[in-house]
């Protein structure tokens, strides 16, 4: 009886299901199955011809070995500095662009978005060259000022900071554009009312614009956190996690554990824990940046 009804439903909506089916099939094969499988893998030890169940061993190793904690620390540092800096820079730059003429807006938007469309590999290669101790642009500049250069990426005291600087100085193109769009949708009457009340430009920005942009801010904060927890290409190109473990971030550790050491199980355990950490951060952010969405 129940089955018959289901079959009838399917027959009646066969076109709808047919429309969804191809995408859903690819989705199941290349996202659904891997997601489920990734949980299993973290309880296994990989061998070329056979795999073995090892229970919680991989998680135990992950905590006994300090690599995971080092990588976690590096990643959290990176995220805690880069994400807020990016959001703040996006907010400031967007606020500065917004009052400009249409032409100027288009120009600056393009200038700030261009590095975002270029691949992280290209940008990282450029910066690696800029940081190069002998022929790099940065040291040449410092030498011109009479200061002496450094081996920015080769010293563990500066390597992580150099990567962080690069990420901050590469403008947050996505954020700028989203803020601009959000600013455009704030009704003018609100500002007019404030002007009548004698509010200064800065007051209007701080009291009206910034609070009303909160949903966009939240979106960018969550997106930025997820993104900076997954930093990889820059590290792969510029430092490969070194010197020492100074720039070993989580995704790089996962890559190395899985695809150099072939410890797929351990890499799977790392992945799951990273996922959990990202979720915790996202949850906290939703909770604390609790936004009043009524305005939209």
């Amino acid at each position: 009886m129940g089955l018959q009804k289901i079959l009838q439903d399917i027959a009646r909506h066969k076109w709808d299901y047919l429309f969804v089916l191809p995408k859903f099939a690819v989705f199941v094969a290349f996202i659904g199955v891997p997601v489920a499988w990734s949980v299993f893998i973290s309880f296994q030890e990989f061998g070329v011809f056979q795999t073995r169940w090892v229970g919680l061993d991989n998680f135990r190793v992950a905590f006994e070995d300090d690599l995971f904690l080092i990588a976690l620390k590096n990643t959290v540092w990176y995220a805690l500095i880069v994400m807020p800096a990016n959001v703040l820079i996006a907010l400031v730059l967007a606020s500065l662009i917004f009052p400009l003429s249409r032409k100027a807006q288009t120009f600056f938007r393009a200038a700030f978005y261009l590095p975002t469309v270029t691949s992280a590999v290209v940008i990282a290669m450029a910066w690696k060259y800029i940081y190069q101790p002998d022929v790099g642009l940065l040291n040449a500049f410092l030498r011109m000022l009479g200061a002496s250069g450094r081996n920015w990426l080769g010293q563990s005291s500066t390597a992580m900071w150099s990567v962080i600087m690069m990420s901050i100085l590469t403008p947050p193109g996505v954020g700028i554009i989203m803020y601009l769009a959000a600013m455009g949708s704030i009704p003018n009457e609100i500002y007019e009312a404030a002007t009548v009340d004698g509010a200064s430009g800065f007051q209007k920005w701080w009291r009206i614009t910034v609070p009303l942009l909160k949903p966009t801010t939240l979106y960018l904060v969550v997106l930025g956190t997820i993104g900076s927890f997954q930093v990889f290409s820059q590290i792969m190109i510029m430092t490969r996690g070194g010197p020492g473990h100074a720039t070993k971030v989580l995704v790089y550790l996962i890559y190395e554990t899985a695809f150099r050491d072939m410890e797929f199980g351990l890499a799977g355990a790392y992945s799951l824990m990273l996922f959990a950490i990202i979720m915790v951060f996202a949850f906290i952010q939703f909770k604390y940046l609790n936004v009043n969405l009524e305005y939209y």
Binding site: G154, Q155, S156, S157, G242, P243, G244, H245
Partner: peptide, 11 residues
């Protein structure tokens, strides 16, 4: 080698 690097980094 990661530890040796730290020696030559003066760390």
């Amino acid at each position: 080698q990661a530890e040796l690097q730290l020696v030559f980094n003066g760390e």
